[in-house]
Amino acid sequence: MCRNIRPLNNFEPPATDDEVHAAALQFVRKVAGTTKPSAANEAAFDQAVREIAHLTRHLLDDLVTTAPPKNREVEAEKARARARLRYGA
């Protein structure tokens, strides 16, 4: 999985459209193998981002869980702690 794509399910408040778009963009960049498409491929690239963001929003809206919602700040601190262990202070 791409390191830059973050889990978006089961957060309070729910994932924003900007977060969904960012995840879709990262996915398309990874699959396409480029961060910026050529002019010839820009329309296809942008269309893919829109479609994946749309489908991701539907997925997030339809997923069901019995787990309590996660807190963004708590999850961010856990990620920072993992990074400190991995890369040092």
Rank of each mutant, 00 (worst) to 15 (best):
L8P: 04
L60H: 12
T34C: 07
R57W: 08
P13G: 12
E51C: 07
E19A: 02
L8E: 10
K30N: 03
R80I: 07
R80N: 12
A43M: 09
P69F: 02
A39Y: 11
R82Y: 12
D18A: 06
V28Q: 04
E42F: 14
D18S: 04
D46A: 05
A53W: 10
A44I: 13
A76F: 13
R80G: 06
A89M: 08
L55C: 13
H58G: 01
G33H: 07
E75L: 05
M1E: 13
V49C: 03
D46P: 03
F45L: 00
E19Q: 06
D46S: 03
D62M: 13
R3V: 02
P37K: 04
K36P: 09
A32T: 08
V49S: 02
E51A: 01
K30I: 04
L85C: 01
A24N: 05
L59V: 15
P7Y: 11
D17C: 06
E12F: 07
A53H: 05
L63K: 03
F11D: 00
Q47H: 10
R86I: 09
K36V: 15
P7T: 10
E73P: 01
K70F: 15
G33A: 03
R29W: 14
K30D: 11
F45Q: 00
R57V: 10
T16A: 02
F11S: 01
R72S: 08
V49H: 03
N71K: 14
R80V: 13
H54C: 04
I5F: 13
K78S: 11
A79L: 06
V31T: 08
V49N: 00
T35N: 01
R82P: 03
V74K: 04
E19R: 01
V31C: 01
F45K: 04
V74I: 05
R29E: 06
D46G: 04
E42R: 07
H21Y: 12
N10M: 06
E77C: 09
L8V: 15
V20F: 02
N10K: 09
E77H: 15
D46V: 13
C2S: 05
R6W: 07
G88L: 08
L55Y: 14
H58P: 05
R29Q: 14
P68H: 11
G88H: 13
L8K: 08
Q47N: 10
A76H: 14
T34P: 00
K36G: 09
R29P: 12
A22G: 02
R57K: 07
M1D: 12
A81C: 07
A40K: 08
S38F: 15
N41W: 13
T65Q: 00
A81P: 08
P37R: 06
K36W: 09
F27T: 08
E75G: 04
A67R: 04
F27P: 02
L25A: 02
Q26F: 10
A44G: 05
F45H: 00
C2E: 10
E51L: 04
